[in-house]
Design a protein around this nucleic acid. Sequence first.
RNA 1: CGGGGUGUAGCUCAGUAUGGUUAGAGUACCUGGUUUGGGACCAGGGGGCCGAAGGUUCGAGUCCUUUCACCCCGACCA
Length: 567
Amino acid sequence: MRRSKVFIPTSKDAPSDAQLVSHIFLSRAGFVSQNAAGLYNYMPLAKRVIRKIENIIHEEMNNIGAQEVELSFVTPASLWEESGRMEKFGKELLRFRDRKDNLFLLGPTHEEMMVDLVRNRITSYKQLPMNLYQIKTKFRDEARPRFGLMRGREFTMKDGYSFHASEEDLNREFDAVEASYKKILSRLGLDFRVVEADSGAIGGSASKEIMVIADSGEDTIAICSKCEYGANIEAATRSVKTELPEAPEAAFNKFQTPNVKSIEELKAFFKVDAYYTIKCVAKKVIYDESSEIVLFFLRGSDTLQDVKAMNATEALEIEDASEEELTKIGLFPGFVGPLDQDKAKHVIDESLRGATNMICGANEQDYHFVGADLSVISDVAYFCDIAQVNEGDSCTHCEGELSFSKGIEVGHIFKLGTTYSKALKAEFLDENGKAQSFIMGTYGMGVSRLVASVVEQHHDESGCIWTKATAPYMVNVMVSNIKDEEQMKMGEDLYLKLQVAGVEVMIDDRKDRFGFKMKDAELIGFPYTVIIGKELVNGNVQIFTRATKEKDDVSADNVFKSIMELI
RNA sequence: CGGGGUGUAGCUCAGUAUGGUUAGAGUACCUGGUUUGGGACCAGGGGGCCGAAGGUUCGAGUCCUUUCACCCCGACCA
């Protein structure tokens, strides 16, 4: 393409509302423009990058035998009523009625549609397994869209769904998709980690997230220093501590502790390590139609992981409980402990099972117990892993230590089981002629989010640095001064030659000056720019490598060959 | 949904506390000329219902009321 003709509106200024580097550069370099909250237009450059990513996805999906389909974006609400997700999804679902007053929605994900597509069409175990996918616009009416393409309301996603006759076969497919996703991310040139994840409300037995490592990521992941283990902080686990701080050994006793309410105050008062104190985190737990106060007990050195807490109580939502709410049911905030606790339902962290020498609230104003032994309630209390791992905790798979990192969730794969096939009565006949529900997996990958992720990971102060696999154009032929006939001729010749060789090439034939065109090329981020300028009189041009900003002199005669070797 | 902020030229923003000709700058754009290795210079030019509606006033970008949009923090996020 000719830079003088192509639609790439670059700008020195970013829109004032852009925060994230990917948003700033994708806007400034003329890839995207914002329409409304969470809605973006893709301009030619963005479209090219997206197509490249899609092609890689198609190739890898093809390699594992997945088949491409395309489901309609507008979805009959009746399917979602059938699965029961109409309610669950809430306001995120954009609903509307057609001229006949039938209710529809814009698909935020397509489990229902895909199950509907195969039910009564795939009817025998002989037709299984089947992995169907699409790359398509999704719409989720996010409460707070943000960060440019990272969290839009309308976005492009690859979503795949697999159907199996057995758990074993689902496991095999799940592993195949995971391997395939890793390959896609590697090909795109991204630094990523596959981590264990919370399965969330979608249910199912296991899920993994594919996280692109970036400081701007919205998720925190815990990763092991030695082995492959990584997990979203919501799901991360740790092994039992082996090196313990010195225990405050004492006989069981009740101690007066006026105004000692927080863990910090407790530590100071008894001069103990927080590990031997018990904190109570009181939450209001909200269920389908009711709510109640639940007390979560943890070691003073830990913090409550909300998602684990929700899973432990099967809650829809949890909120902080106020002091008044606690006082109302007869608790003494600051002095709540797990022993003799009958005022509210409670959950005790797994790490406190059988714990001894503990200091905890005595459920009495201004009193704490010392020397508490939780083994006395081991049989009756509800223990569950509800603590968030800390940096430095030990890995459950090896002797490594866990550390935290920020990640962008670009993929999420689930073992769904029969949740949706049962709800939608999608069945096949097994070898014995018996009707069985499909065992399913679901696999998502955010395509538009990947575009932003590449920029998050590959940029510098001047702009984008596209990887070879994602670059909208591989080579930019920059004619420094278009009034110089030699330069222009050289540029046109090289442009033509590269085109014929199948290289994605742009020629910058604008009448602007050298500096302007260089800044522009750096902002857009072409991997290579051939500078045809003042050195041409000596028979030389330069190859500018965007990633390193290095300019290498090459003779004009050899530049085609040099470029072909580089790309 | 709770808290905060911002809406003035394509973009980035002054101007609003204290109302007063024809609403500004930079940048981008158009014309002409000069320039051509790091976002050039000179001259001329086009571009605005000051987010919207209502009100106060002789007079509103500026004051009042209502409303909409966008952004940030939080909640939420298969």
